[in-house]
């Protein structure tokens, strides 16, 4: 299976929050506490073993290899047929209201069947999901609708870049297939994931940067426990 992934190059990132705002605009995310698909947390200045660091944690859904959010969804299981856009190849899987796409590795939500129970949001060690309680699937007696980063799938399918990548003023975000050179080269030269001994979901957002910045990032932002 091919997997979409993102590199965030902290050597280029200036922590300006343009990504977070472009996402909010593109997907019309309400400006309410915790409602976001994409966030920036400015870190430091703080001491590290390599000297002072003043960097940022630009976060989004990691579209994990083994997403913790998918198996916990209590919505009715249905059969869903996925199509690979280029080849037209199809594959049918049994899914609840959220799944990992077998052809591109993105984790998606069926907004029409979400109950808004929040189980997925609670299960994510990165806090990448939120439940929008302004809206709900009333016919399902829903309490809200879960939302998160889709890697801008509709845009990507239309040949565009994710909104956060397009707007990044420093070209610090690189999106593509995990095995493409522009991504794979970064992984080869030491881009890291925010994983720990107990959190091994296989995130597909990678961070690259100076050792001091990666140290501060992992120290402050890597989850140490599964929720």
């Amino acid at each position: 299976m091919r997997q979409y992934a993102m590199i965030i190059d902290l050597n280029r990132c200036v922590g300006c929050h343009a990504c977070a705002l472009a996402c909010r605009a593109e997907w019309d995310i309400p400006a309410q506490d915790g409602y976001r698909r994409n966030w920036v947390k400015n870190l430091g200045p703080a001491k590290t073993s390599h000297g002072l660091s003043f960097t940022a944690y630009p976060g989004l859904c990691n579209h994990c290899d083994k997403p913790a959010c998918v198996p916990v969804c209590p919505a009715d299981q249905i059969k869903k047929t996925f199509t690979e856009p280029k080849t037209g190849k199809t594959r049918t899987m049994t899914v609840a209201a959220t799944w990992k796409n077998p052809f591109d590795g993105t984790v998606q939500i069926d907004k029409t069947r979400c109950l808004g129970c929040g189980a997925c949001a609670d299960a994510c060690p990165y806090g990448a999901r939120y439940v929008n309680t302004n809206i709900a699937n009333k016919d399902l007696d829903g309490d809200g609708i879960a939302d998160k980063c889709t890697f801008c799938k509709p845009r990507v399918e239309a040949g565009l870049r994710p909104a956060c990548v397009q707007t990044c003023i420093a070209d610090a975000r690189i999106f593509g297939w995990r095995d493409e050179p522009k991504i794979a080269d970064y992984i080869k030269k030491g881009a890291i994931r925010l994983s720990s001994a107990k959190v091994q979901t296989g995130p597909n957002v990678y961070y690259y940067g100076q050792p001091k910045d990666l140290e501060l990032l992992t120290k402050t932002s890597t989850p140490q426990e599964m929720p």
Partner: peptide, 26 residues
């Protein structure tokens, strides 16, 4: 998924009738 509904389970009529999920195509 942003794909044309080739036999997918997208139920357009219901989606349009009463709920609101955010802009599907940004």
């Amino acid at each position: 998924d942003g794909l044309p509904p080739k036999g997918g389970l997208f139920r357009a009529s219901r989606a349009l009738a009463g709920t609101n999920y955010g802009p599907m195509n940004g």
